[in-house]
Amino acid sequence: MKPAPFKYVLASSLDHALALKAEHGDEARFLAGGQSLIPAMNFRLARPSVLIDINGLTSLAGIDRPEAGQVRVGALMRYRALERDGEFLRSCPLFADALPHIAHPQIRNRGTIGGNLSHADPASELPALAVAMQAKMRIRSAAGGRTVAASDFFAGLLTTDLASDEMLVDITYPVLAPRSGACFMEVARRRGDFAIAGVAAVVTLDEERRCASVRLALCGVGETPVDAGAAALPMVGSRVTGESIDAVAAGVRELIAPSGNVHASADYQRHVAGELVRRAIRTAHQRISHAA
């Protein structure tokens, strides 16, 4: 289990990295945290001929607030840095729930948010968070830049909207709105494993404590993170009750089409996803009450 040969280049700037990617295209891969890429290379499932190391690009490793109500996270932010950033976790509490589920501390010390999202593993937590939070993904290439919505970013199994010359450079998340509660939950075989099913839920109430909106996204149950917001629409406009939550769970079970894997049958994934939806909405809702 040793990687095939490649040429290694330490990028000296973002422009340098992007120029190299433009030159080498699909033959080249960016090396960020390497916690998915290097195992794939060790198995020789990935054989890039050029590895562009972007770990020196400190400009990609920060958090800022471009506007009120938004947090922008650089692609090179490591999970551990996010975990240790109390202010960030308060602004985006789904991360507080989700980050501990990502592998183990040793992996979280290296793995980056940009690498995770660009890898687009559908069982991974952060793509579901991006979809649930309606994050905006800023993409750069040597030729220019663009921004896409998270829901458009994840194109398929391990596939994103990124062209061969592009890099995800940062992600902008809305901070949790007033009168809102958020919850991420997942079922995995062991702590740190990829989710059999995971649910990110954000519930917002109006001033009469009726449901104003529900954001809902799932991981592990499709080829991409699944936006299940539609299943929660019937809840909007009325009080959150056990029955209405059950109805959303039933709706999600119909909406998703998990494929099953060595750890779980598709039926079990569907069943668990529904149960997690129930629990996550309930918890998110309770968290509003507790905050109020």
Binding site: G34, I38, L51, R80, Q106, N109, R110
Partner: peptide
């Protein structure tokens, strides 16, 4: 920071 040395070059 503890890291996996098999996942670094």
């Amino acid at each position: 920071d503890p890291v996996r040395s098999c996942l670094m070059l």
